[in-house]
Design a protein around this nucleic acid. Structure first.
Lengths: 342, 342
DNA sequence: TTGAAAGCGCTAACAA
DNA sequence: TTGTTAGCGCTTTCAA
């Protein structure tokens, strides 16, 4: 590579324009009380020299960096990815830069990511805590210093504001639908994702309360677990039934494994997911799922962060999900399939 | 929220321990030449006061922040997400923090993300440039200041080091396989993703060179385009054929739409993807695809960044992909499907 | 309206 | 081994 250019500082611009660095600062920040000619001259000099502000110097002086951090457990979960994308847009529109860091599904990495963000004096932190209890320390460390919002998963006793979808309400929508579509005598199965994240636990508990006779399997939030759960079910000689997965990625794994083993969906097994974001376009048949209101959630997060300090008591925002009917639970009514050859 | 704590500085720790702030700095950085007792005392004071280093102060002084940035066009592409995850691990192991920013598939946002990272004095930048020509300015602005590597997509004439998979080689593997599995007289279709990103263009051109008689359709790197392309094909009254998609997400959309419209895979249509990451577990039947060597790519990026400056000439690292056989192109040999009831 | 000066928190050169 | 001091680039009083 060619030599890197030395970075141009305000001093350089000031000298070039024949003013003091205060004037450069004022010109760049658009201060009102300033001679327009001088401002022009400064801006031109900055342009000519290719000046770009050193945000570290600014942040050190101002005691804040115009950045909001997002820590998620794992980029590879499409729901989190969709969330990161949308949250970025929302913060950008509000004048913040969103920087994202993955905890690599590891507690010490998560803790490290928090420290690093704090050390960088970011303005606020949004975090999807990996673990319902073990993430507390990291979460509280952040909350002690900057406005912090937990999203999707929460450390219950932390007192840190939380935004998520109403998992119980979502599960109720699903349970009602399950009753509608499950034939007499067929099994209902809930394929969960452990109990160490609050969303997994809440969904599982809500389902257990409504359908205590269901069969419960527990794994992780990924496709592989869906495949594995399907194999487990078939090994148990289940011939059919309705399967509720606690995430769309799991539901997709279930569907594809069941189909690969010759089971028909929805005739033999019906499959229902949860999230409604990111992967539903991959599914065949289209997945019946509960859509989390991602736009409202992002708006709520921004709101909480902006208003931080005005509401001293801890806050919890639960937004209503909606059931999206796919073909993974109900046969097409028209039964029409376009004939070969279009 | 409760009051945020004032941040504790080295001064505070120094006073508490009864030493100078230089000693605090030394204790924390693990300098050899230091009285172990003093170090102990300092570390204890830091612990007691809950001191955490202000990385901005450090970075301003040291003229570098121990962070590497990654800018990608879009979190929602599972290949990019997988890449971000893996790259994070690799950099973490090498002692860097990886912060990720999305360009939101927009050039001015991409440009802004670059400026912001540069302003934060990060150590190096990895970027998947959105556009083969329009991203040049942002890319070169970065490269002028810090070690910069383009990944997956490139701005050809920029002279900025590039790491990617050998798209031509990948397409050759695919073309050979296409010849093997396509019945006499059946159509070969290439479903691309425009020509404004280098990877899309390279794959398309390589395929066109090998199979000029194929039908070429162009769209974007997402599932929706896969669905749409499938509909286009059926409208053209294609009854069957082999479809090569320039990304797995497109291939998944194609498969699910074709199947939803009653076509069988691989009997009627065979589908081949490109990327080999993350999404293949979702596919039914399992996708035949070209797997990009993601681990080697990440290693190459780290290597390039670490060695930056030693190799003045521009560098290009093309790594070999491999064909992964799925069932989307070939019928199972044993034809066995587990009987109902396991 | 402008400039001089101080200082954000840190580290590193230098002196003791 | 330790402390003193200077200064990274910036913004913000305070004076002029």
């Amino acid at each position: 590579m060619s030599e890197r250019s030395q970075s141009i500082t305000m001093r350089d611009v000031a000298e070039h324009a024949g003013v003091s660095s205060s004037s450069v600062s004022r010109a760049l920040s658009g201060s009102r009380s300033m001679n327009p000619d001088v401002r022009e001259r400064v801006l031109r000099s900055a342009e000519v020299l290719g000046y770009e502000v050193n945000l570290l110097g600014r942040a050190l002086r101002q005691q804040r960096l115009n950045v909001v951090g997002l820590i998620l457990p794992d980029f590879s979960n499409p729901f989190f990815a969709a969330m990161a994308e949308h949250l970025g847009e929302v913060f950008r529109a509000a004048g913040f830069e969103l920087l994202v860091s993955s905890a690599g599904d590891d507690l010490s990495t998560e803790r490290h990511a928090v420290s690093s963000f704090l050390g960088q004096q970011i303005q606020a932190l949004v975090i999807i805590p990996k673990d319902e209890t073990e993430s507390r320390e990291a979460l509280e460390a952040a909350s002690r210093r900057i406005p912090t919002v937990q999203f999707d998963r929460r450390v219950a006793t932390s007192g840190v504001p939380y935004v998520g979808c109403d998992n119980r309400a979502g599960i109720e929508l699903i349970a009602r639908h399950v009753r509608d579509v499950t034939p007499q005598g067929e099994r209902v199965v809930f394929v969960g994702a452990g109990v160490s994240s609050s969303s997994a636990r809440e969904r599982r508990e809500a389902f257990a309360a409504l359908m205590p006779d269901a069969l419960f399997l527990d794994g992780t939030f990924d496709v592989e677990w869906g495949h594995q759960a399907a194999r487990l079910l078939l090994e148990r000689s289940e011939r059919g039934g309705t399967i509720v997965a606690s995430a769309d990625v799991i539901a997709l794994g279930l569907q594809s494994e069941l189909q690969a083993r010759g089971r028909r969906i929805p005739q033999d097994f019906r499959v229902i997911g949860f999230d409604g974001i990111g992967v539903t376009g991959y599914a065949l048949p289209a997945l019946t799922t509960v859509r989390q209101p991602i736009e409202e959630m992002c708006a709520a997060i921004l709101e909480l962060i902006s208003r931080d300090g005005l509401h001293p008591e801890s806050t919890e925002v639960l937004l209503a999900p909606e059931l999206v009917h796919g073909k993974s639970t109900v046969l097409e009514e028209d039964g029409a399939v376009a004939p070969l050859g279009g």
